[in-house]
């Protein structure tokens, strides 16, 4: 307990950065992933191909390498300069978006084809058929896997510690510098993660209840 209380500043900054990474990357991944999933079911072959390529390349690359690219490779390209926190956010967003896209696509596949036919029959174009009829039902169907993706994202944020981002995963090394027992520190970090995931699971249950679609 002393490890936690005496170093609350470290824990607070660490978890604050973790939550910022999680929330910002989560929102971007959700938006990007949904767009990519939509492209994967688009009637235009080139769009489907582009989305499939993106998913296969990024999802099959280890997260560490993705972050390596943004932290170390990207600055050498001479484009807009970004700090490590932004680099980590971009890397995590692009990586997580591939998982979101696949979750959303599996959701789209659960929506009976008749729903899309009915939408097209009343004159809705492809985009509106997707956004007004298919996606709302697809999201409802994939709340559990979607939350698994976000829980993974929450824990993946610790990888960013390796790239000088002072998030929760970096707490241990900072504690060591202060001469605190690393083991106790790690246990506290783990405990707080479990707590945050509990909160996420609680939100998940609420959403599942609220958005149940009866057929």
């Amino acid at each position: 307990m002393n490890t936690l209380l005496n170093n609350s500043d470290l824990f607070i900054t660490g978890f604050r950065n973790t939550l910022i990474l999680f929330i910002v990357a989560g929102i971007f991944a959700l938006i990007l992933g949904t767009i990519v999933a939509a492209l994967r079911v688009s009637p235009i072959p080139a769009m489907r191909a582009a989305a499939t390529l993106y998913i296969n390349v990024v999802r099959n690359t280890p997260l560490t390498l993705v972050l390596f690219f943004f932290a170390l490779g990207y600055p050498k390209l001479g484009l807009v300069e970004i700090d490590f926190m932004t680099a980590a956010t971009v890397g995590l967003s692009l990586y997580t978006a591939t998982y979101v896209a696949e979750a959303v696509r599996s959701g789209i596949n659960t929506v009976p084809v008749g729903q899309a036919e009915a939408a097209r029959a009343i004159g809705l174009p492809f985009t509106q058929t997707l956004t007004l009829v298919i996606l709302p039902q697809a999201f409802r169907a994939v709340i559990p896997p979607m939350f698994s993706v976000f829980i993974a994202l929450l824990k993946n944020t610790t990888v960013a510690a390796g790239f000088s981002v002072a998030e929760a995963g970096a707490i241990r090394s900072n504690l060591s510098e202060r001469g605190e027992p690393a083991m106790a520190g790690l246990l506290w970090v783990a405990l707080i993660f479990v707590l945050i995931v509990f909160i996420l699971s609680f939100v998940q249950r609420k959403l599942e209840k609220k958005w149940k679609v009866a057929r």
């Binding site: 008749g114 009915a118 939408a119 029959a121 039902q137 409802r140 679609v213």
Partner: peptide, 19 residues
């Protein structure tokens, strides 16, 4: 899409928007 708006369709399996 515009032309379909002029053609009403009723399906065997109703296909009401479930949500």
């Amino acid at each position: 899409a515009l032309l379909r708006a002029d053609v009403g369709m009723v399906f065997q399996s109703f296909n009401l928007f479930a949500h």
